[in-house]
């Protein structure tokens, strides 16, 4: 690890791939200029090294990381799940630091890599907690389906929560940002990638329950205490698009355009088809 070389790495974006990146960097004794995935690769003048994702490489690095402590491995796994900019480089720098200083390197908050990763991991955990509440299922003939648009890769983090909560349900959570999907049935939970697909229209029976929920949501607000800023602080707008009770509101707001300051969210929404 003597010098920074003029080379960029490209890998497949998986966790094993990332561990293979670390393996390659150490075995080739070089620090790349940048690490891309195949999805976000940019044209550069640097030489490109394509990292081959290999089980044995990943296993060796994982074992090496676990050797420091369980916490170290967790930092790498959660670090991989975050949406930190250049997270691959930060993780590689942390690996180099660990190699030099030993396991306590992850507590050195003054180092840039540790600081940014810690912040990113906190954001990941916070977002995961919010999604434990903000996930909204829609029932399609016995299967519960939910869409989310998280910033971080939250599915592996919230997997356990939903598994213990709905052990006998068949459900799937679709992560539209990262194009991955969590599927649960009686055999247990699985993660998979998917190519774009649209959901069928919501069945009428389901619409009725959604109406009930929206009705409950609207009545639960106390008019005299209205405080949109407070709501926005707790439940930022970027979550609204996938939440049953907020969707209609979001749509109304866009229609009413940006110019009109006043948005009366408490006005009862148009009642649905059938109660």
């Amino acid at each position: 690890m003597s010098y920074r070389s003029n080379i960029v790495y490209v890998y497949d974006g998986s966790f094993d791939g990332l561990l293979s990146v670390i393996f390659d960097a150490f075995s080739r004794r070089e620090v790349p200029e940048h690490i891309f995935t195949y999805d976000n690769e940019e044209n550069t003048l640097f030489a490109v090294h394509e990292v081959e994702t290999a089980d044995d490489k990943a296993k060796r690095v994982a074992k090496w990381l676990r050797g420091f402590s369980g916490d170290v491995f967790t930092v790498f796994y959660y670090g991989y799940l975050t949406c930190v900019k250049n997270k691959e480089m930060e993780l590689l720098m942390l690996a180099i630091k660990l190699n030099k200083e030993g396991k306590n390197a992850i507590f050195d908050v003054s180092s840039r890599a540790v600081h940014t990763l810690n912040k990113g991991i906190l954001a990941l955990k916070n977002e995961s907690h919010l999604f434990c509440g903000f996930v909204r299922f829609t029932e399609y003939s016995g299967v519960l389906v939910s869409e989310i648009q998280p910033k971080n890769i939250v599915l592996p983090v919230i997997l356990k929560h939903f598994e213990t909560r709905f052990p006998n349900e068949r459900y799937m959570i679709i992560d539209r940002t990262h194009k991955s999907i969590l599927i649960h049935d009686y055999r247990g939970s699985q993660m998979a990638n998917y190519t774009d697909f649209d959901l069928p229209p919501i069945p009428p029976n389901e619409l009725m329950i959604q109406d009930l929920w929206c009705g409950f949501y609207d009545t639960a607000a106390i008019d005299q205490r209205r405080n949109y800023k407070c709501r926005m602080g707790h439940m930022p707008k970027r979550y609204w698009a996938t939440m049953t009770e907020m969707k209609a509101l979001l749509r109304d707001e866009t229609i009413r355009s940006i110019n009109t300051e006043r948005h009366d969210a408490l006005a009862p929404r148009a009642a649905g088809t059938s109660h």
Partner: peptide
């Protein structure tokens, strides 16, 4: 923790599922 024969679990810290227009 949830149980195999049923539905539901309880989380120590609690979970907020939505927020009303008054921020509660």
């Amino acid at each position: 923790a949830g149980r195999k024969d049923g539905i539901g679990s309880a989380v120590e810290g609690g979970i907020c599922h939505s927020f009303t227009a008054d921020g509660r």
